[in-house]
């Protein structure tokens, strides 16, 4: 599991310092900070960023909104973002609200409010709302990562790293090369959200990453995976073998 990369755009250094302090205390990885629109845009395209925290007002003008508007226009580039603001001025808000999805954080804020705002932004961005707030689920799935709530903060797991998933009632055991962990998500949801050309169901309780399959042994109902992992292949899902070019 990796820490989330946060990019802070804030013109007041003392405030960005406070932010960095709180975020790092909660295991977030602050990739960079920027104080103006130009630097922010440059850094944004250079860095690997998972979420942006940006002040609406940069040096007296609502450049924060302009930034959000800019990254929103480029497909597959946009990331979840949280607006920081110290005023609830309606006109500004009406404009900021157009940069859907819209999440904001009122200054002054405390630690809980900040973490909550980040979670809300991720949920809204990947349109999987009510995940981190409920007791039933704790994972938001994007194309690239699983965002998992661990205690108070979020973690991410690269989806291509997943070797297989074992479903156990309402939990899912995720196996990667390095670790094994448990997430809370329903089977239907995970099947819907994962790319089904890569992830295949081989059993009532198994979902396997095809890229990590090393060998399929139909006679033993067994699939061998990288890192000495094994998954079960049930009769019902044996048809998946036809999808691979088999060595004979």
């Amino acid at each position: 599991m990796d820490n989330i990369n946060v990019f802070i755009i804030e013109d007041t250094v003392s405030e960005s310092n406070t932010l960095v302090k709180v975020l790092e205390a909660n295991n977030y990885n602050v990739v960079a900070t920027a104080t103006n629109f130009k630097d922010a845009l440059e850094t944004f395209y250079k860095s690997k960023i998972d979420i942006v925290i940006l002040d609406i007002f940069l040096n007296g003008s609502p450049d924060g909104i302009t930034f959000a508007e800019t990254i929103n226009t480029v497909p597959n580039v946009s990331k979840p973002f949280v607006f920081l603001t110290s005023s609830t001025d309606r006109k500004i808000f009406e404009r900021a609200k157009l940069t859907q999805p819209f999440s904001f954080l009122m200054k002054p804020f405390n630690e809980l409010e900040l973490l909550y705002a980040i979670e809300m932004a991720v949920e809204k961005f990947y349109t999987q709302e009510d995940v981190f707030l409920s007791d039933d689920e704790d994972t938001v799935i994007s194309d690239e990562y699983l965002f998992i709530k661990k205690f108070k903060s979020l973690k991410k797991v690269l989806i291509t790293d997943i070797i297989y998933i074992e479903v156990e009632e309402k939990y899912c055991n995720i196996y990667t090369e390095k670790e094994k962990f448990v997430i809370l998500i329903s089977l239907t949801k995970i099947l819907n959200l994962l790319n089904n050309s890569i992830f295949h169901r081989t059993h009532r309780n198994f979902i396997v990453n095809a890229n990590h399959i090393t060998e399929i042994i139909p006679s033993d109902n067994l699939i061998l995976l990288t890192g000495n992992n094994r998954a079960t292949l049930s009769e019902r899902y044996k048809s998946i073998t036809k999808q691979f070019r088999l060595l004979k």
């Binding site: 609830t88 405390n110 409010e113 909550y116």
Partner: peptide, 27 residues
Amino acid sequence: ALLQTEQGYFNIDKLRLFFITEQVSYN
């Protein structure tokens, strides 16, 4: 003042009470 002049942003949305109370009481 904001309320009186209707200048504030006001948006009714679905809220989970627990988190709001937690965040406020944290201070």
